[in-house]
Simulated assay, not measured.
Amino acid sequence: MGVLKRAKRSGWWVAGVKDPETIAEHSFRVGLIASVLAMMEGADPARAALLGLWHDTQETRVGDIPHIGRRYLDAAKNETVTADQLSAAHPAVRAGGQRIVEEYENGDSPEVVCARDADRLECLVQAVEYREQGYANVQEWIDSSLAGLRTASAKALADAALNMSSVEWQRTYLR
């Protein structure tokens, strides 16, 4: 997973962000947000966090392909990449990792919904933070992330993120 600490989220370059977050930074916050959403939604926070932490691990093999790039590339399914990544792992790790990715990609449990909402909400929050730093071309990420949210809790947190500065957010929600 050291690759994820070094690999930048490439979609932000399209918006002009010169030094975007890494995939690991994104995944870390997705895991935390997934746990918070699960608590708010009455789901299992540990399971939601686990799903969120594993959701982009395939990018150690295929990189972070921005949405526009997906028009032109036929990337392997995440389940296939995970199977290859874990082929030499301990059998319990191999089976567990494959189950986690399979559930995230194909499931619809409350934990999966929270993890997917966390992925979108993290992108929205990151876009808002970049906008605060002067990057004006992030509205598309905000709009598409907002449109994909399913839970009432994620929608409420998105509304707060869109209507407060990051400093206000910290003062309000980190008491």
Rank of each mutant, 00 (worst) to 15 (best):
V3F: 12
V3S: 14
K5E: 13
R6S: 13
S10W: 00
G11D: 14
G11T: 09
G16R: 02
P20A: 09
P20I: 11
E21A: 11
E21G: 09
I23H: 01
I23D: 00
A24W: 01
F28Q: 12
G31Y: 00
S35P: 00
S35V: 03
L37S: 04
L37V: 02
E41A: 03
G42E: 09
R47E: 10
A48F: 08
A48Q: 05
A49Q: 05
L51T: 07
D56M: 05
T57Y: 04
T57R: 07
Q58G: 08
Q58M: 12
H67G: 15
H67A: 15
L73G: 11
D74R: 15
A76P: 06
K77W: 05
N78T: 13
T80N: 12
A83N: 02
Q85D: 09
H90V: 09
P91R: 03
V93Q: 07
A95Y: 06
G96N: 08
G97N: 06
R99K: 15
I100E: 12
V101T: 13
E102F: 08
E103R: 08
E103I: 09
D108T: 10
D108A: 14
P110Y: 04
E111N: 14
C114T: 03
D117L: 07
D117F: 00
D119G: 06
R120I: 06
R120Y: 07
C123V: 08
Q126Y: 07
V128Q: 12
V128K: 14
Y130K: 12
V138R: 01
E140A: 12
I142P: 00
I142Y: 06
L146M: 08
R150A: 05
T151F: 04
S153G: 03
A154G: 02
A158Q: 07
D159Q: 11
N163T: 11
S165C: 08
S165F: 10
W169I: 09
Q170F: 06
Y173F: 15
L174D: 05
R175S: 14
